[in-house]
Structure formats: C-alpha cells, structure tokens
Design a protein around this nucleic acid. Structure first.
Length: 349
DNA sequence: AAACGGACCAACCGCTCACAG
DNA sequence: ACTGTGAGCGGTTGGTCCGTT
C-alpha cells in the first residue's frame, strides 16, 4: 500500500485549476504574499493542498512569468547549464528569469533532448554519442574508481580536494562547480522573499516592481533593450474580470490551456472582424487562464501570422514603447476598462 | 471521418532538506 | 540528538492536441 497524498487524505480538489481557483489564489497572494503555503488554501478559500497552490503560483500565476517559445539564447543557455548542472532544473531555471523549472524540464524532455540526439550528441553527457558510448563502457569497466561526473573543462579532482572551487567559464557563461552550486542559490528566481517583503498590511507595494527589473539577467537585457520602468505589469489582464457564463460550468477537468486559447482566438477573431475596438468590448470574457495565453493571441493580432522566429513578445513590445501612452494597446485598455472591478492588484502597483 | 500514436504540458507524487521545538 | 513540519525539487503521469494513416 502506497502512501496517500495530502490531497487524498484531506479530500481536497485535484487536477486542473479552474479560473475561479486561479482568481482566488492570485488575489490572495498578490494581496497578502506567501506566508505559509500550507495555510494559503484555507485563507484563500481553496479546496487544494498548499503544495498544489504553491505549484500553481510558481508555474502559472506569477506575474513575472515569461511565456511563449524559448528563444535561441535561452535554448543555448539551457544546454550549457545542463551540461554543467545536470538535471538540476531549479538551478537552471534560476538563470532564466521568467522561466520555471517545470517549463524547462518539459522543454528539455520534449525538444532539446531530441535535438541533441539528432545532432549526434548524447544529452546526458553532452558528448558526441560514440564517444559517450565508449566512455560508458570504460566507466563500467573502471567501476572501482568512483568519479564524479564533471562538466568539461573542470579539473578532474576528487570532491575532497576541491574545497574551494573557483567559478569557471563555460561557453562564455560563468559557472560554478556543481557541488558549490548546489549549496549556493544564485538568486531567488521567484523573488518571493522580496515579494513578501514588499507587502504590508495595506497590501501590495509598488517597489516590488523595481526589484524585478534589477535582476542581473534583466539588467543585461535592459542594456541592449531598454525597458520603460514605469510600465511593469500594468498591462496584465485584470484577473477579476471573468465572465463565467462563457466558461464551462462545474468541473474543469477539461480546462486545458490550449482549449482556452482556442476559445480566446475565436473571441478575438470575432471581435476584430466586428470592430477594431471590440477587443476591448469583449475583454470581459477574458479569464485569467486566457490572459496566460494572450501571447499567442497577440501574435495573430499584431502581425497576422503565427510567429515562429524570435520576435519580442507583446509584453516586450509594450515595454519597448518609450512614450507613456499605451492607450491604443488592447491589454492596457483592457486593464483600464476593467479597473473598476473588485480587486485590481495592478492598480496598486 | 475515424483511429492511432507521438508530442506536449500541467499537475501530482514522493523524496530530501532545512529548521524549529 | 531527535522529531515533526513545511518547502522545494526532480521524476513521472495523465489528459489533450495534432498530425498521419
């Protein structure tokens, strides 16, 4: 008999999250921050375990999540970091702001692994497959000597002799020895500690944003691609703006994001065919889930074609606008349009 | 049009670690 | 030193999508 999960024990909801649940969790976290995950579901009024709430927030609801396809740079970085760190997805994700460990893990397993194999590279060792096979055979034969798998370029020293390992360069990226890396978090990718720190009794405080924009990685981005510090998340869709009539009632077991985006695409298409401004008029039908998939929708809306090559996301495009007038931008307008509803965290930011 | 299978991704599970008592 | 609890991580699963036959 296996152990029952906490959800089973407490008869809590499992499976996909409904927009209502997302709304509750999002509103709770943005208002109060993350104190103790185990108490979040109770306080937020959710029939979920804390673990599930945490995962949902980290992988889906966080406002700073970057969505859409991985860029070539990100792809290269993942490969390089994987070579150095192995399957330490959380640490790899820490180097890629806006990406989650889960996302990277899935991307690795579904795409990058195959890509490397296609290129004749063993995804586990990052060496040419023949060489890797030979090495495996050698390792088996040489099982007496216990060697730790090390990234290329590292001196092959036993752990005990590598007490103070210097960071090293790997394909231009500063890396730290795996052992050291494990014990040292480069930085909190979720900045939840800061997030919390910036929430007081009055609610959410605006300086969280400025913290977000001073991340090392983003600083690099800013150098070549200035970000207007004033825009932040203002353009994010208003979570509280649901029209649940348009959603499937009851169980959301069939509530896949893809399906939702399809639904939204239809909404958007209909809107644009009726009137250019109707996107805003129909904004009330956007769910939070919908907002998460807006990237792909905007790709259609702005260019008319599905963009496969690297292009700035709509969010980036928005950031890149140097003038402060975003009134023509659908999402911004959406946010403005809906600002009168219940809790609008973005207003507080 | 239906069936099938691979790809993709969200979410779960179980383990480890850190920390407080 | 031990124990309990919560957080975090990585592996795995299950559902859906989508292309092919």
């Amino acid at each position: 008999m296996g152990r029952n999960s906490c959800c089973v024990k407490q008869k809590l909801r499992k499976g996909l999250w409904s927009p209502e649940e997302d709304e509750k969790l999002y509103n709770y976290i943005t208002r109060f921050g993350v104190g103790c995950w185990s108490s979040v579901p109770k306080l937020a009024g959710l029939q979920r375990c804390g673990k599930s709430c945490r995962l949902r927030w980290i992988n889906y609801l966080r406002p700073d999540l970057k969505r859409g396809m991985f860029s070539q740079e990100e792809e290269d970085m993942i490969i390089t970091l994987h070579e150095a760190l192995g399957n330490r997805w959380a640490q790899i994700a820490a180097q890629l702001p806006g990406r989650t460990d889960n996302e990277i893990k899935n991307f690795w397993n579904s795409c990058l692994k195959k890509k490397l194999i296609k290129q004749g590279i063993d995804p586990n060792t990052h060496r040419p497959i023949n060489e890797a096979q030979l090495k495996d055979e050698k390792d088996c034969a040489d099982s007496a000597s216990l060697q730790i798998l090390q990234p290329r370029g590292l001196p092959n020293l036993a752990p005990s002799t590598r007490k103070e390992q210097e960071p090293y360069q790997l394909n231009g990226i500063l890396c730290i020895d795996r052992d050291n890396f494990t014990s040292k978090q480069a930085y909190d990718p979720l900045f939840l500690s800061e997030f919390q720190a910036n929430v007081d009794a009055d609610g959410y405080q605006s300086n969280f944003l400025s913290h977000c924009q001073l991340r090392p990685y983003e600083q690099n981005q800013i150098e070549g691609n200035p970000i207007n510090p004033s825009c932040g998340f203002n353009s994010m869709p208003n979570l509280t703006s649901f029209d649940h009539q348009n959603m499937i009632d009851g169980e959301y077991s069939d509530n896949s994001a893809s399906r939702m985006s399809k639904y939204l695409m239809n909404e958007a298409k209909e809107s644009s065919s009726n009137s250019n401004n109707n996107v805003i008029d129909n904004a009330g039908t956007f769910s939070w889930d919908a907002g998460n998939k807006l990237d792909s929708m905007f790709q259609f809306q702005f260019s008319g074609i599905q963009i496969e090559e690297r292009k700035p996301s709509p969010w980036q495009e928005l950031h890149n606008q140097s003038s402060g007038d975003y009134s023509n931008y659908p999402l911004t307008a959406l946010s403005q349009e809906l600002s009168g509803t219940t809790l609008d965290v973005f207003q507080q930011m």
